[in-house]
């Protein structure tokens, strides 16, 4: 009976969604806003190859700021919610092969993560993806060596410093009169090189470090509440 009711609700929802599908005829050209972003004078004003990065960091930079804040709040609530109980745990020993492979792979994974966020304005990727890759490296280390102590202080300091520098860079643009989160506070450079697009690589690197530290904190929190089993 209840399932029938749910089914009727879903049918109603589907019939509400159907007009969206029905009136969608595919796009033949960009929306006006995106056409503005893709004009060649605006492209050369930002000077970043990756237009998605340009939108994320400069035009819609406030969204990114809010998003980093949400992630920070989620991490803080999880840390507050899951009290660390230092119980004694006995785990089965990891295979030696896996330990060696982890030792070898963790620096490479971190290097790839750093590559992804430093090249955020040239290739796909950026702060969030790079941060996620770095967090994966940290979790691989934690999986291979369960007894290794996770350096809370370092990650929290890294997170705070990156957040402060990010907001500071954003505010610096406003102070010198260019606008909040403007990337022209550093020289724009030549299109398509590593040192181009003004402050975008710097800002994205700090976003990446911050996201990586936050995700590592969340994952470590989930790991440290595993009880004896």
């Amino acid at each position: 009976m209840k399932k029938l009711f749910v089914f009727i609700i879903l049918i109603a929802l589907a019939s509400m969604l159907y007009p969206l599908l029905d009136t969608f005829h595919g796009n033949d050209k960009l929306s006006e806003l995106s056409q503005f972003y893709a004009q060649s004078e605006n492209v050369s004003k930002v000077n970043a190859q990756n237009l998605v990065t340009a939108v994320v960091v400069t035009y819609r930079g406030l969204d990114t700021l809010g998003e980093v804040t949400i992630l920070f709040l989620a991490a803080a609530i999880i840390a507050f919610f899951l009290k660390t109980e230092s119980e004694k745990r006995t785990l089965r020993k990891n295979s030696e092969i896996f330990k060696t492979a982890a030792k070898m792979l963790v620096p490479i994974i971190t290097m790839v993560g750093i590559y992804i966020f430093i090249n955020g304005h040239l290739t796909p990727g950026g702060g969030f993806q790079g941060g996620a890759v770095i967090a994966s490296g940290v979790i691989l280390m934690l999986l291979a060596f369960p007894n290794m102590e996770f350096n809370h202080k370092f990650f929290e300091a890294l997170e705070s410093i990156s957040g402060v520098v990010y907001v500071g860079l954003a505010a610096f643009g406003a102070i010198i009169g260019l606008g909040f989160l403007d990337n022209a506070i550093l020289p724009l450079g030549k299109f398509g090189e590593l040192f181009s697009a003004g402050a975008i690589p710097v800002i994205y690197s700090f976003v990446g470090l911050k996201v990586g530290a936050e995700l590592s904190n969340i994952l470590n929190k989930f790991k440290s509440v595993q009880a004896e089993n």
Binding site: K88, R89, T90, L91, R92, K93, N94, P146, N147
Partner: peptide, 12 residues
């Protein structure tokens, strides 16, 4: 193999 039967654990 008796050597492999013994399961080793990591102590915290």
């Amino acid at each position: 193999s008796t050597k492999a039967q013994k399961v080793e654990y990591e102590e915290k």
